[in-house]
Design a protein around this nucleic acid. Sequence first.
DNA 1: AAGTTGACGGATG
DNA 2: TCATCCGCCAACT
Length: 126
Amino acid sequence: MSEGRQQQGRWDRVYGVVRRIPEGKVATYGQVAELAGLGRNARQVGYALHALRSDRGVPWHRVVNARGQINLGPLGGADVTQRLRLEREGVKFNARGRIDLKAFRWTPDSRGKPGSRTPRGSRTPP
DNA sequence: AAGTTGACGGATG
DNA sequence: TCATCCGCCAACT
């Protein structure tokens, strides 16, 4: 398998990563972008999810911004749907509507261990 | 074909 | 904590 590019768009890769997010966990756009191989282009991730327009089996509701907050506009009530789904999966929201990423941030490394998370500021060395 | 946009991240003020 | 600016890159018009 050499060429893995689907003409559907590179976003399909994003969907694949989002699909890996387990229940009760959330991932940030930047995280998904990195896992999808988009680098730090988190914008494309958000745009990709928006392009979904429907679930398509992709738990887009498990993707939140780096602040652990939902960014969707109140229109359409998509943001409410997202929060409802997350709460249903066990994700707790702060009084301000924020998620404690410290406890709910998903790590593909199966690091579901509280207290141990990747320290921020450490970029990928060349 | 070219320009604009955008479910963002991160740094700075 | 919040507000504002810049940057990245593909999709969209």
